[in-house]
Structure formats: structure tokens, C-alpha cells
């Protein structure tokens, strides 16, 4: 392998908190030493399950239960096992970005907007109260319509009322934005 400068020298953990979605898990944020925008079209090709929004310049993908979002110089991860897992994911993402950048000449970049997620996945992020206040019979039905672009996230009443789901709301908004769906 030819020696070349790494695209990312450092990825520094800057925030960690208990996960709002799953019990006993953590969410965290880390800062990239460089903006990763220019690697995104290559990552869009390399990461098989990537959801890519070229206008917003966000990439979202999952690794097991972990939800990973890359944006500018920020890495945001939900549902990491624990702190050691957070460091392992940081290493994984750093290597992924550095390897993709190093091999970019042999990768066909994809600027295509892709939504690779399922209604079931979106459902798993919702409050799952089945309150019917959005007009749908179940949260799963709401997730199907959200993915189809037929309803907006803001129609989810529990998510937008009170503090209970405020952290989750922020995450859902980010996801919906990444996926280019109606917020």
C-alpha cells in the first residue's frame, strides 16, 4: 500500500448520553478533523445501506442496531452499546472514510439521492403509542405513509407534545431530513 496522507487525522468524541430510543444504550457525537462532504458520493457507493441526501449533504446508515449519521464535520450515533462500543464505531467510521478516500480513484461516485430504509425501521424510531391522533390506525401505518411521503412527521402528536419525546423528536427530524421526507 502506498503511503499517503490520511483524509481524517482525528475523530474526537465530544458528547455522550444515555440513548433515548433504547434502554442501556448510548448516543454520542464526535467531531471529524476535516469536513467529510467530498467523500460522501464515494461513501454513497461503498456503504450498501446508505441513505444519502446530496442537497443536505448527509449520509445515514445502520450498523447492527446503531444508527450512524455523517454531516459536515459531525458524526452522530444512536444506539451504541456503551462507551467502548462508541470508540470502536469511531475507529470503524474513521477507517471507512480514510479507506474510501484513499481508494476513491477506483470507486464510481454516486450523487444519487437514495433512501434505503424500511417502514419497520422508521416505526422502530417512533414513540409507538398507537394513539391514532395522527389519523392513522397504528404507528406502523403512519411509518408506511411517512416513508411514502404521504404524511409529515409533524403529524405525530406525542412526538410534538411535551418534553417526553423531545430528544427523540430531534433525532427523528434529523432522520427525516436525511431521507428527504416531509418533516
Amino acid at each position: 500500500m502506498t503511503e499517503q496522507k490520511l483524509f481524517l487525522e482525528r475523530v474526537s468524541l465530544i458528547y455522550m448520553a444515555p440513548c433515548v430510543i433504547a434502554n442501556n444504550n448510548v448516543r454520542f457525537e464526535a467531531e471529524f478533523s476535516s469536513d467529510v462532504k467530498e467523500v460522501m458520493p464515494y461513501l454513497n457507493t461503498v456503504i450498501k445501506n446508505a441513505t444519502y441526501n446530496p442537497e443536505r449533504e448527509i449520509i445515514f446508515f445502520t450498523k447492527g442496531p446503531r444508527m450512524i449519521t455523517l454531516r459536515d464535520r459531525k458524526l452522530a450515533v444512536q444506539r451504541a452499546d456503551d462507551q467502548t462500543d462508541a470508540y470502536k464505531i469511531i475507529d470503524f467510521v474513521k477507517d471507512l472514510i480514510n479507506d474510501t478516500y484513499a481508494n476513491r480513484e477506483s470507486i464510481t461516485p454516486s450523487y444519487e439521492k437514495k433512501v434505503r430504509t424500511s417502514a419497520l425501521e422508521i416505526f422502530s424510531y417512533l414513540p409507538r403509542t398507537n394513539c391514532k391522533l395522527c389519523g392513522e390506525p397504528t404507528c406502523l401505518a403512519f411509518a408506511v405513509k411517512l416513508l411514502a411521503g404521504e404524511v409529515a412527521l409533524s403529524a405525530c402528536v406525542p412526538l410534538y407534545s411535551g418534553e417526553k419525546f423531545s430528544a427523540r423528536k430531534k433525532e427523528m427530524e434529523e432522520l427525516v431530513e436525511t431521507m428527504g421526507l416531509n418533516s
Binding site: S12, L13, Y15, M16, A17, F28, T84, Y87, D91
Partner: peptide
């Protein structure tokens, strides 16, 4: 150790993780 506190605490944790590796 950090646990979401502040950057310097994460720097301490990072050293532990690097040693673990």
C-alpha cells in the same frame, strides 16, 4: 472518565481505549 461531561474527560477515556487496543 467522561460520560457526556466535557471534552477533556473524553480525552482521558480515549487514552484508556487506545491502551485497550
Amino acid at each position: 472518565s467522561g460520560r457526556g461531561a466535557y471534552k477533556r474527560a473524553f480525552a482521558a477515556d480515549n487514552i484508556v481505549y487506545e491502551c485497550r487496543k
